[in-house]
Design a protein around this nucleic acid. Structure first.
Length: 215
DNA sequence: CTTTGGATCGTCT
DNA sequence: GACGATCCAAAGG
């Protein structure tokens, strides 16, 4: 399997996202087949971390395509994106779910809390399909964290790589609203997944993230 | 199967 | 100071 090329990754994230489905993410002896992604359009997308311009956190997104943008959220989770626009333009695809296809033992150890697990407690038991189901689960299972922010995924020898996989026919790609996105852009069908995959997170139609304001 | 509350801290206003 | 591009366990149907 050849690695993906930088030119493959450069483009409108709404088009790069479905292209990424079935690609294989490789990191530290583990491999995960990507089954769910979300497109973020930077300056043209109120839901994007880059919407309000560059900051120290989102700096990688403003760099060249093919690099990993890793961010920390909810006080405990890491999520990983692939940058897909030329330097100066911030666009990216969030990796939302994958099927672990190699390195199950290590992935399970990270997720469930083996001797060398993440701090805190993971789930007691997980099915294989749940190892990398969800953006933060995927990073834990694959061992991706802050050190991998900026990693060049197209470079052989990089800590994190992405390899070509069987292209997914359009008829098997499903689109829906992005998860956890409210306000402008909430309705955009930029969450893309492979139909019928057990490792895609539960489909939720437009989710108004409710938070009650005082009366 | 679904709903609910809690954990927890970097980032930006 | 407020709020997440989330996950988990527990409880209810």
């Amino acid at each position: 399997m050849p690695p993906v090329r930088r030119t493959d990754l450069e483009g409108d994230p709404v088009l790069v996202a479905p292209w990424l489905l079935n690609k294989v993410l490789v990191r530290g002896g583990r491999a995960g087949r990507i089954v769910e992604v979300e497109a973020y359009r930077g300056a043209e997308d109120a839901a994007s971390h880059a919407y309000r311009g560059p900051t120290p956190r989102n700096a990688v997104m403003f760099g060249p395509p093919g690099h990993l943008y890793v961010y920390f959220t909810y006080g405990m989770h890491w999520c990983a994106n692939l940058v897909c626009a030329r330097a100066g333009v911030a666009r990216a695809v969030l990796l939302r779910g994958g099927e672990v296809v190699a390195g199950h033992e290590l992935a399970r150890q990270r997720r469930c809390g083996g001797e060398d697990s993440r701090r805190g407690d993971g789930p007691r038991v997980v099915r294989d399909r749940d190892l990398a189901r969800g953006p933060a689960r995927l990073t834990v299972a694959m061992g991706i964290n802050a050190r991998h922010n900026g990693a060049d995924v197209t470079r052989p020898g990089s800590l994190v790589r992405v390899y070509a996989g069987t292209p997914v026919p359009d008829s098997l790609v499903r689109a829906g609203p992005r998860v956890g996105v409210s306000g402008a852009g909430a309705a955009a069908p930029w969450r893309l997944r492979i139909d019928g995959e057990p490792s895609v997170s539960a489909f939720r139609p437009g989710v108004p993230r409710r938070r009650q304001s005082p009366a």
